[in-house]
Amino acid sequence: MDAVRLIAASRRALARSGEIPETMTEVWQAQALAQAIGSRLAVSGPPELRGEALGLTELAGRGCGVLDVPSIDVADLRAAQLTDLGDARRTLLDLGGLLGEVGIALVGVACAADDESTYWQCMEAIDAADESRDRVLEMLRRLAARDQNQGVAERDPAPG
């Protein structure tokens, strides 16, 4: 399945989640998806994104690592369903939105948490989601700079 559809499915699932365990499962799913997208971009994305994409992979992996691993059937793991990145810009725009929603959901869980362990998991996961989103925004900036440079080169070709 393409990245944009998986991100949309994650956003819907996160919005529908109600209880803390369900929300934490959706947060974990979103971080795993961000990790998979980062990995794909690092391997086959535009060359100017590869370093930041590796960073996204690491940060999203940290976001998964600070949370308790949910018991999810492999068939339900959205990251495992990723087959195509599609348009990098669209994927990154949507992923940035998802990561922002993850942060908001985690703030809600942290405020409602009855135990210190859940609270601190949320704090660390908020940090990872925020840093992951920063990487996404940097990749979007690099794509815009690339497009701007290509536009200048097309308008003003080098003398030959």
Rank of each mutant, 00 (worst) to 15 (best):
D156L: 14
G38N: 07
L6A: 02
A75Y: 12
W28Q: 03
E19K: 12
I37E: 06
D68C: 02
M139Y: 00
G100N: 09
I20K: 01
D127E: 12
P47L: 07
G97M: 07
G38K: 07
L106Q: 07
D2G: 02
E138Y: 05
R133V: 04
T57C: 09
W120V: 14
T25R: 13
R146D: 03
Q31L: 11
Q81I: 01
D2P: 14
A88I: 05
P46F: 06
Q35H: 09
A79V: 08
T83W: 07
G108P: 03
Q35M: 11
A105V: 08
G55D: 11
L92Y: 10
S10C: 14
R78C: 03
R5P: 01
T23D: 01
V27T: 03
L41W: 02
A3H: 01
L82I: 03
A32M: 08
D147F: 05
V136Q: 04
L54H: 10
Q29K: 12
G151I: 04
S17D: 04
T91C: 13
Q121N: 10
A42C: 07
G151S: 12
V107K: 11
D130T: 15
L82Q: 03
L85E: 05
V109W: 06
R78W: 04
Q35I: 03
W120Q: 15
A80W: 05
R142N: 04
R142F: 04
L99W: 05
T83F: 06
G51H: 00
A113Y: 03
V109L: 07
R12M: 10
L49D: 00
E116A: 11
A105K: 10
T23E: 02
V107W: 07
V152A: 11
V152F: 15
R135L: 05
A125S: 15
Q81A: 15
A13W: 02
C122I: 06
R141P: 00
A112K: 08
L140H: 00
E26Q: 12
G108L: 07
L93V: 13
D76S: 14
D87T: 09
A13F: 01
R40V: 06
D73Y: 07
W120E: 15
A158I: 12
D68F: 05
L82A: 03
G63Q: 04
V152L: 14
A145I: 11
D147Q: 14
G18I: 09
S17T: 06
A3R: 00
W120G: 03
R40S: 11
S44N: 11
A60L: 08
R11Q: 15
V66E: 00
W120F: 14
T57L: 11
R40I: 00
V102C: 09
D115C: 08
R12A: 15
D147H: 09
R11S: 13
L106F: 10
D84S: 13
A53K: 00
R146V: 02
A53L: 04
R62D: 12
A158V: 14
